Structure formats: structure tokens, C-alpha cells
Simulated assay, not measured.
Amino acid sequence: MRESSVIATRLLGWYDRHARKLPWRVPPGAGRGDPYRVWLSEIMLQQTTVAAVKSYFERFTTLWPTVEDLARADDAQVMAEWAGLGYYARARNLVACARQVAAQGGFPTTREGLAGLPGVGPYTSAAIAAIAHDAPETVVDGNVERVTARLFAVETPMPAAKPVLRDLAATLTPQKRPGDFAQAAMDLGATICTPRSPACTICPLTDDCDARARGIAADLPRKSPKKPKPERRGIAWVGLTNSAVLVEERAPKGLLGGTLAFPSTGWDGSDLPPPAPADWRQVGAVRRIFTHFALELTVMAAPLRRQRRAAGCPLDEFDPEALPGLMRKVWSLACPADPTATSPARSLT
């Protein structure tokens, strides 16, 4: 019979030797993580890879070293620094959560208390409680689901298997060092028990793995067939004067909410005319895959009359890197870096 204490001992021993060095993490056995840094990293890591998050995390913690600093930050600056990380509701919740935490004098120490914060769901609350407060909470992300599915040879396809995998993972969570154990399980899934070609021969749990014994480790977890994503189409307008670019701040809620963007219509349910009378011409299209749909935006561009300057952002203050990824693609198409290219910006010089 599988002994959960043996698995915990083996996995923690492996983690002590092979833990990934991450900017938000304290070394194995060195105690609890800083709740602010744990929370910030977990919010950033939602639907995003470790590699993509590192530079954002380091920039945020340089600009705002404490949750109180972030609570005092200007919303627009936070949204600009978040640009490119995607899922912008996270950034809006980040500011709201920081302000609530600062107002109440610090982060709650329990999973239940943490779950009451803006943008903190079941996984994130368990992760902060375990890693920052050493509470024996079960932390289950995609890596842990994969490790658990293989350890117990769970063949039920995802996502139906999620409740089963969480219950099984809970049987392995130790009372001692639960935060290190959670991070160890995540590291194992990220570096050894990978989606394709798992390195079973060097896995510390190879003798405990039912899927390995049955020769089906690489096939698990099974997935239900994906439904094709619905297609949306819309238009984005890029208009410039000699000194300004026409941009707007999107509504606080909804897709790309609160971000700086070019006027657009159609794809988000809006039905708006062009933002200004002009000789608009089509310069191409950009495509982006979101979680629930695929989007194609036709990009229209035009030089604008000087009196439209007040409605735009001065070009010497405009930073394309502050745009969300979709709008950066729109800008790159309408105003390419090639100085010989025909674009609204070049036609005005």
C-alpha cells in the first residue's frame, strides 16, 4: 500500500537538492515566504508561465517593494506595467486586493481569510496559506494534477477528473513543511513529470507511480476532446496627427478592461462608427487566440486633422509597450518600424 509519508519524505528530499531558484521563493527549509511576494507571484502565474512572469515580478517588486506601496500606486501605472502579461482583470484585482490588505493591516493567515480577497480563488488562497504561513493546505495547479494523475493512474479525462485529483492530492499533503511540499510537487511536474516524455528514470517517486508501473505515464492525464473556439471579428482604428495618436482607456470591466487601447468595435459587442472623419484605409489584420474565442481584427489607419490632437496621446508620451499584447500587434501593423514603410505615422512626416 502506498504510504503518503514516504512520498512526502522522498519528494521533500528531492526538493531540498533540486528546487528551482525563483525570485519570489525562499530556499527549501529556510522558513516561510513573504506573503506579499507569494501573493504577487501567484496572481501573476495564473494562466502564465514562470519564464514570462520573472521580469514582471522583479519590476513590480522594484517599483512597489511592499503591499502598502502597491496600494498607493496609480491604477494607470499598474496597468501599464502589467501590459503584455494578459488577463487584465488580474491587474485590476491586484490593486483592489493590495488596498484591502493595506487597510486591514496585512494579509490574512488562513485559506478562508485569504479567499475573501479580490482576485484570490481556491487555488491561490491555498498556495499563500501553505507557502507564506506553513498551513497544511493542499495546493493543486496543473503540474500537481499531472503528478497526481500519474501517481494514482487516474484515467478519467480532464476536466472531470479535477475533484478526484484534488482529493487524492490531499491525502499526500504533510503536516510538516506543507509549503515546501506544495512547491516540490509543482517543481516535479515542471521539470521531471512533464506533459510529454516524462523523465521517469530520474523521478524520486518512480517506485510509487502506478502509471509508470502500467506503462501509461505519458498518456496521463487524459483530456476530453476540445471544442473549436468561436470566431469573432472586429475593426481597430489607428489614427495620428503630427504630434498625437488616438487612444482611449477601455471600460474598467470586460476584456482588456482598464487598459490603453486603440478605438475598436465589433469583437467586444460594441457597434461604433469610426472615431473620426478621415481617409481610413485597411492595412491588414491581426489575429489573437483568447481563452474562450479566436479574434481577427481588421486594422484601419489614417492621418487625422490637427484639431483631433486633444483626443489623443502626445506621441512623445506614447509608449507602445504600455499597450496590451493585442494592441501592440495592431500598432506594429499600422506603424511598422521600417522607415520606408507606408503608414499613418510616416505619411505625416
Rank of each mutant, 00 (worst) to 15 (best):
D180A: 03
A115H: 14
A184R: 00
T206H: 15
P159C: 10
G113C: 08
R166Y: 15
A149K: 04
L168W: 15
D187P: 00
A170K: 10
L117D: 07
N93C: 08
F152L: 05
G119Y: 03
P122A: 15
T109Q: 13
A199R: 15
I128C: 06
A184T: 05
Q100N: 02
E155H: 07
R177I: 01
T191S: 12
L172I: 05
Q175W: 11
T191V: 05
I192Q: 00
T138A: 01
G113M: 09
R166P: 02
T148P: 01
T156F: 02
G113V: 08
L114S: 10
R111P: 11
S197H: 14
P195Q: 03
K176Q: 14
P204A: 13
L172N: 08
F152R: 03
E145I: 03
E137Q: 12
M186D: 02
T191F: 00
A161M: 12
Y88C: 00
S197E: 10
T194C: 06
T156C: 04
F107E: 06
P198I: 14
P178Q: 09
P118F: 03
T110F: 10
V101I: 14
V139G: 02
D187T: 07
S197R: 14
D134A: 13
P108L: 06
L114C: 11
A170Y: 08
Q175S: 13
L94S: 07
V164N: 11
T206M: 13
A102H: 06
D167S: 15
A135Q: 15
D180R: 04
T109I: 03
R146F: 03
K162G: 10
A103T: 09
V154D: 01
P159R: 10
I128P: 09
K176S: 14
A89E: 10
E145F: 03
L188T: 03
V144C: 01
P198A: 11
N93D: 07
P157E: 03
V139Q: 06
R146G: 00
T171G: 06
A98P: 00
T110G: 11
P118I: 01
A132N: 08
V140K: 02
Y88D: 14
D167M: 08
Q104F: 05
L94K: 04
V147A: 00
R166T: 12
T110A: 12
C193D: 07
L151I: 12
A169I: 09
A135K: 14
A89Q: 13
P159K: 12
V140M: 01
N93T: 09
P136E: 14
R99N: 04
D180P: 00
G121Y: 09
C97M: 12
A89R: 15
D180Q: 01
G113I: 05
P198S: 11
T110P: 06
G119L: 09
R150H: 00
D141T: 07
G142F: 06
P198R: 13
A89V: 08
P163Y: 05
G179W: 06
R111Y: 07
L151Y: 02
I192Y: 00
D187Y: 00
R177S: 10
G105H: 01
G116M: 12
G113H: 08
K162V: 13
L117F: 12
L172E: 07
R111K: 15
V164S: 10
G116L: 13
R196E: 15
L94P: 03
P174V: 07
L205S: 14
T156N: 07
P163M: 02
P118R: 11
R90L: 12
F107H: 12
A185I: 00
I202T: 15
P204C: 14
A130L: 14
R146M: 02
R99T: 01
V120E: 09
